[in-house]
């Protein structure tokens, strides 16, 4: 059972929610697909039990000894990546057009390292995560790898939580692919609503159980109501509403999940939301939640 947590825009509190839900689930496997800002692991004093280099693409390189500087490659490159005798690795998309036209056979494509990947073992299970090379793109291949990498270490875990990438692009699509359900964390703002609409269009493509949660809903109750109305009309279940709560920032800066703060109103709301989520998961996806032995 894979639940992916998404937010169209960044900063809505997605990672806070993932950390809390993972505590409540009692040791879900966590996959941090938010590869541009992989913050989930900061919560844990974990050990990296596995580390690897990830080669996410191809890049052209020039053998300067062979290059005669004719410039045919510069002209053919659609990505403006070549200024002889150099190739800008950030612009090169590895298409190989330059390789085809070079009369001197001076250009070849090589595998490009785009990230380091880690399996981090924590008190409450593993996190599969990556650290991107600066300027590299989190590709669908990387996200797929992170998901697969987690299975290798805990193949039979009943729940996997995926901290999805922001936006609606390539990596998001790969974080949704094959998931059973999605929880979208939004906030009661104009941008929150507009991004929510965009991401719902995407989850519709994927035919998966989608739920919505409004974080800091009381910052603007009017806008929250607008979002709720929109969600109801789209026939999508509301999983919960989390109030603005200063404890969240306190918890974050102590790097402790909000669930460690029993009296926090945000925590209470997330606990209620978790009940609602597990109910939907069991009703519609056949998920049987095993409560952690206390």
């Amino acid at each position: 059972m894979e639940l992916v947590i998404l937010s169209g825009k960044g900063g809505t509190g997605k990672t806070t929610v993932v950390a809390a839900l993972s505590e409540l689930s009692g040791g879900a496997v966590r996959i941090d697909c938010d590869v541009d800002a992989p913050n989930l692991y900061l919560y844990y004093q974990g050990d990296d039990i596995d580390q690897d280099s990830f080669y996410g693409g191809l890049k052209a390189i020039i053998d300067e000894g062979r290059c005669i500087g004719c410039g045919v490659c510069e002209q053919i490159c659609r990505f403006d990546a070549i200024r002889l005798p150099m190739i800008d690795g950030f612009s090169c998309e590895g298409c190989g057009a330059c390789v085809l036209v070079c009369p001197q056979h001076a250009i070849r494509l090589v595998d490009e390292k785009t990230a380091d990947t880690f399996i981090t073992k924590t008190d409450t299970g593993i996190i599969s995560r990556a650290r991107m090379e600066i300027g590299s793109d989190g590709s669908g291949k990387l996200v797929t790898f992170l998901r697969k990498n987690s299975k290798q270490f805990e193949p039979d875990n009943s729940l996997t939580l995926i901290d999805g990438s922001p936006g609606i692009g390539c990596t998001v699509i790969s974080s949704i692919t094959g998931a059973d359900a999605a929880l979208i964390v939004t906030e009661p703002t104009q941008s929150g609503l507009s991004d929510l609409k965009r991401i719902l269009e995407l989850t519709k493509h994927f035919d998966l159980l989608t739920m919505v949660c409004i974080n800091k809903y009381d910052i603007n109750e009017e806008m929250s109501k607008k979002i709720e109305d929109f969600v109801r009309e789209a026939d999508i279940p509301m999983a919960g509403k989390i109030p603005f709560d200063k404890t969240v920032m306190v918890a974050l800066n102590q790097l402790r999940p909000i669930t460690k703060f029993n009296e926090s109103p945000a925590n209470k709301a997330i606990v209620r939301m978790w009940d609602c989520i597990t109910k939907h998961l069991s009703d519609e996806c056949g998920y049987m939640h095993k409560y952690p032995s206390l």
């Binding site: 590709s139 390539c170 699509i173 790969s174 994927f206």
Partner: peptide, 9 residues
């Protein structure tokens, strides 16, 4: 099946 795969990379 559902457009899981292939919308993009």
């Amino acid at each position: 099946g559902v457009a899981h795969h292939g919308i993009s990379g």
